[in-house]
Design a binder for these strands. Sequence first.
RNA 1: GGCCUUAUCGUCUAACGGUUAGGACGGAGCCCUCUCAAGGCUCAAAUACGGGUUCGAUUCCCGUUAAGGCUACCA
Length: 482
Amino acid sequence: MSNVRVRFAPSPTGYLHVGGLRTALYNYLFARKQNGVFILRIEDTDRGRYVEGAEANLIQALKWAGLSYDEGPDVGGPMAPYRQSERIDMYRKHALQLVDEGKAYYAFDTAEELESMRKEQEKLRQTPKYDRRALKLTTEEVKAKLDAGIPHVVRLRVPDATTVAFDDIVRGHVEFATEQIDDQVLLKSDGYPTYHLANVVDDHLMQVSHVIRGEEWLSSTPKHVLLYQYFGWELPQFAHLPLLLNPDKSKLSKRQGDVAVEDYRAKGYLPPALVNFVALLGWNPGDEREIFSLEELIQEFSLERVGKSGAVFNLEKLDWMNFEHLRKIPDAQVLQMLRNVLADSEFAAKSFSDEYLRGVITAMRDRASFARDFVEKCPYFYARPEQYDQDVVKKRWKAESPAHLKQLAEEFSRLTDSAKESFEAVLHRTAESLHVKNAELIHPLRVAVSGMGAGPGLYDILHLLGKDEVINRIETAIERIH
RNA sequence: GGCCUUAUCGUCUAACGGUUAGGACGGAGCCCUCUCAAGGCUCAAAUACGGGUUCGAUUCCCGUUAAGGCUACCA
């Protein structure tokens, strides 16, 4: 048992950002490690940014990554609902409570008025901040405006001349002067809460023990702390995670590459690889291990080992991790992945036996970082070469190669099987009788059967293709390579 | 501009006052070898700068610089 309750609280903007994935992951790991509860809460309080299907997309991405949650909009839970749009009564009630207690107040300013106020402040080089003009209204005036149905918001009344402080698990002690804190809107004129209000109310009501979120929230945390104090609620622990960065060190964003989890999924990255990779962006186990399964990450994770500085999202290392994770996947499973890739390829119409494909997998294992590499890096396993790599031909195809290969084909034709060793023995014998080095036959033969200069050991290729196919390809190559 | 945060190889990072500043990705080279990989070995590569504190600073403090975040009736 544990009182740890954490949440991932994304705004459904259409897709899951890899930064969001990492935030979700750290919450998940912390919850699992502490035998706590992991909650998914949808922060959809901005009806202006409503995106059809965004929530389903988000859930699908989390599922793909393997991050299961104990409570959430689709699985329910004791503190339901988990969609903020379905909880607006609670926010309103709490906002009004603060108004009653003088800790928040109504404001009736229009967007235009606020805009010109801000412009004025900027002109005077002041910090843009609400000037509290609504506080000059008498209670009668406020009541009259309310009765007249004039659009209004509720703003937080930030105390003067004091500081708000809190201790962050990652950052340590942080302090803000209240002069710097704006009288934040709590309840918008459309009746929906802002993030700040909804977040605090929900975290309290859902008994969230640790707020683990991105560093972009650090600056608004004092507003949240103030709310907890105003409501008389116990403060959760805060842990503000370092940001994920573009190569130029700015906050990871679109336009500088892929940021959506689904992009990486589409590119063929394995869920455990992507998870492993983002886990190590801002956290490390303290020793030199780098490859972890989700289970292992749970065992090792601690918030104390989360770093403070932002981390650049480095694709090259991610590719390497994908390679490492791919090679851990058993053949049977890779076979299924390969079949999926094949079904989506130019070779979709052809059929191959499991045995054959297993052979390809064995041959290509050390050369594949992605499932698609089992097809893209060795198309010759699925069809005869349509062309021959000219650079390789130039380098390996000698004037006498056609004659050599012709003889080899003849020797091969006497073979009674397609064993690797049989091909090897015949090739050695032929080279000897021709008085050439094995390599003089191997290289041209490789080009002839594969069209390429790189790949698995030649005898593995020959064995897989089989005697008849090999002979056939040799004959074709002799005709077509010049 | 203001506030907040951050600062070790190109990148991800280790070193919680004493190390030849370690590892990984990437790069270079060598070995292996029928090619390409994989694997093994080796090399190049960092404590932003300036002051303190200390017998001793990557580590603690201050400043500078740089970078980032926030500065909405968005999250």
